[in-house]
Write a protein that binds this DNA or RNA. Structure first.
Length: 427
RNA sequence: GGAGGAAUGGCAGAGCUGGUUUAAUGCACCGGUCUUGAAAACCGGCGUACGUUCACGCGUACCGGGGGUUCGAAUCCCUCUUCCUCCGCCA
């Protein structure tokens, strides 16, 4: 959620940013509406406070009069209060209305893109900031197979059993497939820990407050699984519980940056997806992911974003997977993000780039709703910047490893994983 | 799931027979005096949000959340949530 003051102080930047996100001139009127509603809110507040102040004053006087036994005077004052009450009731109602309208309007405004973000319509306009210039997988004397074929041949993943037990999009990993999955999780967590992140194992279901604070609610409830009876949501990413750790907290300046990492399964309904995109592990309803999250000083958040990009890059290099990095354009940028780098891994048999990580700086957009602030000395609390990234999303990494490392006889496990898997190849 | 108790400022902890409490006191923290330095002692400060003001400041709200009674609620009533104790069930 944007702060209203950003719109008051730097209107031009806000409008320019919204244009990058392809806001029409009509939609830009929303900015005026927000400012106007905020003006009404302020005026209402001022009026309300005046009346409340009078009631407080009268009440004190009535108390004193009763003590002195001047009941007649006290009763006159009581009538004065009664007339104030009418005003108060009316203004309170108005204040509530305005606040709701203001919030609704603010929820429609996305984050302002970083100046480096280009205008664009969709993923075709994303800029490749780092392309792969290393070696590509080669397959001599046999035809490379997609991962779902390999998974079945070597008994690593059983998609049919997943369907039987739950439904489409819930793969069942087994044997060396399950072991590879676990090895990757441990590898990613160890790498994060070595990079200074504290590991947390958060709840996998969150309440409405948490889902709202990180922006999944109110509009994206269709993307989450919901438990009706207890009104809880299955997390679509560890970002939700982990970022909420600091909801409504004021942290000390010295504690920043706060670096957290978590492994969790992620649950996404992915309503409306179909076709070749959802084949195999390309798009599933449940997948494992290790997430890295940072709470940072505004002055250093872009350095930290770079540091996180480097971290993800190092993981892919160690796994020896061909990858490229994209800077998302305004049309593809997430609602809450100011700048996002996507990592895509090349999956050699499908001959496709698969998104395996998304690293973003949300600046104060998330922390404004979460109320995560820091305090330097005796200064007023300021909103922190929040950042997060996948490091990494498991299912598609498995797909890429299987496809890229296949030989005529089996699948080679990347060397860095050997100590985690306990085996060096699948055959 | 059943019965009872509780929830107060960073922490501890009073207030809870409704009205000088705009929440006592202690600890922690910050500044100062003293000291060669430190400790102790003493003095002062010490929440958040919104509104208002050029500013000092002032006003309003917040004692787990929401609602109610009252001229006035931390204090009384209703409701929800969480925690503790006991019982039941259970990995």
């Amino acid at each position: 959620m944007l702060h209203v003051n950003i719109m008051r102080d730097d209107r031009a930047r806000v409008e320019e940013g919204l244009r990058k996100r392809n806001f029409s001139e009509d939609q830009l009127a929303l900015v005026d509406r927000v400012i106007q509603l905020d003006d009404v809110r302020k005026a209402t507040q001022t009026g309300l406070d005046e009346h409340l102040s009078k009631v407080n004053k009268y009440s004190k006087e009535i108390g004193a009069l009763f003590k002195n036994g001047q009941k007649d005077k006290a009763n006159v004052m009581r009538e004065l209060v009664a007339s104030e009450k009418d005003h108060i009731k009316m203004l309170e109602g108005r204040a509530k209305e305005v606040e709701v309208e203001l919030k609704e309007a603010l929820f429609l405004l996305p984050n302002i893109p970083h100046h480096s973000v280009a205008k664009g319509d969709g993923d075709d306009d994303n800029e490749v900031v780092q392309d792969w210039d290393g070696a590509w997988p080669t397959f001599e004397g046999f035809a490379a197979e997609p991962h779902w074929e390999l998974a079945s041949r070597y008994n690593l993943i059983d998609f049919k059993l997943g369907v039987k037990i739950t439904g489409s999009g819930f793969p069942l990993f087994r044997g060396k497939g399950a072991q590879l999955e676990r090895a990757l999780i441990n590898f990613f967590l160890d790498e994060a820990r070595l990079a200074g992140y504290e590991e947390v194992a958060p709840p996998l279901l969150v309440n409405e407050d948490s889902a709202t604070a990180t922006g999944q609610l109110p509009d994206k409830e269709g993307q989450m699984y919901h438990t009706e009876l207890d009104n809880l949501y299955l997390i679509p990413t560890a970002e939700v519980p982990v970022t909420n750790i600091f909801r409504d907290e004021i942290v000390d300046f010295d504690e920043l940056p706060i670096k957290l990492t978590a492994y969790t399964p992620c649950f996404r309904r992915e309503a409306g997806s179909y076709g070749a995109d959802v084949k195999g592990l390309n798009r599933v309803h449940q997948f494992d992911k290790v997430e890295i999250v940072q709470f940072a000083l505004p002055s250093t958040s872009y350095e930290i974003l770079q540091e996180m990009v480097e971290h993800v890059k190092s993981l892919l290099l160690k796994l020896e997977l061909p990858f490229r990095i994209l800077r998302l354009c305004g049309g593809d940028l997430g609602f809450t993000s100011a700048l996002t780098f996507d990592f895509e891994v090349y999956s050699a048999a499908q001959e496709k780039w698969l998104e395996v990580s998304s690293v973003s700086n949300f600046e104060s957009f998330q922390s404004n709703r979460l109320k995560v602030r820091y305090r330097k000395g005796k200064e007023k609390p300021q909103l922190v910047h929040t950042l997060n990234g996948s490091a990494l999303a498991l299912a598609r990494i498995v797909a890429a490893i299987l496809e890229n490392n296949q030989t005529a006889k089996g699948i080679n496990i990347p060397e860095v994983l050997h100590k985690y898997t306990g085996f060096t190849e699948i055959s």
